[in-house]
């Protein structure tokens, strides 16, 4: 079947099997490998992208379900002039990443979280990240980065 998805502002149209997961569509059909697969039970959140501006786990969405949707991946988050999004910038300043594998999903989850709750408490951030697993950072600096980013009004965009 043919699906047409706007990915990072670009209209993409590809023939896929109905069983194609959105994450595989993004990685293989579109060729954007920033979004990672970390599990097979919708647990780890490494594959988190924005669909219609909201965080979803792209391993648990069929490409067919995303037909016609607007999807943003880590590759599409920076500003058109190349400036990092405030969440990306905060991750760097606060050492919010080590091996980097969970990072794209974390960044997208936090971006969605800040759109829904622009002034989260630490507890809000921690609960908001319950579906994103990281093995390197102990989450300490990820939470710090999220809280720091929330202070930047641009982080909601």
């Amino acid at each position: 079947m043919r699906v047409t998805i706007t990915v990072n502002g670009t209209v993409e149209s590809h023939d896929v099997e109905p069983r194609t997961l959105l994450v595989h569509y993004l990685r293989e059909a579109v060729g954007l490998t920033g979004t990672n697969v970390g599990c097979d039970t919708t647990s780890c959140g490494a594959c988190t992208v924005l669909m219609g501006g909201e965080s979803v786990k792209s391993c648990t969405v069929l490409a067919a379900q995303a037909d016609g949707a607007d999807v943003t991946t880590i590759e599409g988050l920076a500003r058109p002039d190349g400036r990092l999004h405030p969440v990306q910038q905060a991750f760097r300043e606060h050492h919010g990443l080590q091996c980097g594998f969970c990072t794209p999903g974390m960044v997208m989850a936090i971006t969605s979280l800040l759109r829904e709750n622009p002034a989260p408490t630490e507890r809000d951030v921690r609960l908001g990240l319950e579906g994103n697993l990281c093995r390197c950072t102990g989450y300490h600096n990820i939470v710090a980065a999220a809280l720091a980013a929330s202070a930047d009004p641009e982080s909601r965009s």
Partner: peptide
């Protein structure tokens, strides 16, 4: 190391 991981992923 970070800019790459944060902008396009590893």
């Amino acid at each position: 190391e970070d800019p790459k991981f944060l902008s396009v992923g590893g």
